[in-house]
């Protein structure tokens, strides 16, 4: 059972990491374009970044167990996007990639079930877990 859970987490991480490559591999992703000028909630975009929400949701639940004070959608959305308005999933992906790099550079990491993740990655998963 343990191994299966780990495998699931690993799959989630691969999907997560690939999703954060700014112009990365779209093959495993279903990317919603969104309409120009239309403001999109991060949560909706995140939904579009994964073909399977199960593994990141699992990571997100674990993150929220460790940081229960972040169990709040609005708070997580603000933490991820700041003041920036997003129009589509592609923009979100670019934003997440930049934030990921910034988090790792500044050491703002979260260790979730042993995985060393950027804070933003972990929060993105937490947001999915709150779906």
């Amino acid at each position: 059972m343990n191994l299966t859970r780990r495998q699931a987490l690993a799959m989630g991480l691969i999907a997560l990491a690939i999703s954060l490559i700014p112009r990365g591999m779209a093959t495993v992703l279903v990317v919603g374009d969104g309409l120009p000028g239309e403001w999109v909630r991060p949560l909706d975009c995140l939904r579009d970044l994964f073909t399977d929400l199960g593994p990141p949701r699992d990571i997100g639940h674990r993150y929220l167990q460790s940081f229960p004070q972040e169990r709040n959608r609005a708070l997580l959305e603000r933490a991820i996007t700041g003041e920036q308005q997003l129009y589509d999933a592609r923009q979100l992906r670019t934003l997440l990639a930049h934030k990921r790099e910034h988090d790792f550079s500044t050491g703002d990491i979260a260790v979730v079930d042993g995985w060393v993740l950027s804070r933003t990655e972990a929060r993105a998963c937490a947001l999915i877990a709150l779906l």
Binding site: L13, A97, V116, L117
Partner: peptide, 18 residues
């Protein structure tokens, strides 16, 4: 391994599990 996790993550080469 934590430093490797942050650096491999920053460069998006991989993720590390402790």
């Amino acid at each position: 391994p934590r430093l490797m996790g942050t650096e491999l993550g920053r460069l998006n080469l991989g993720r590390v599990r402790l």
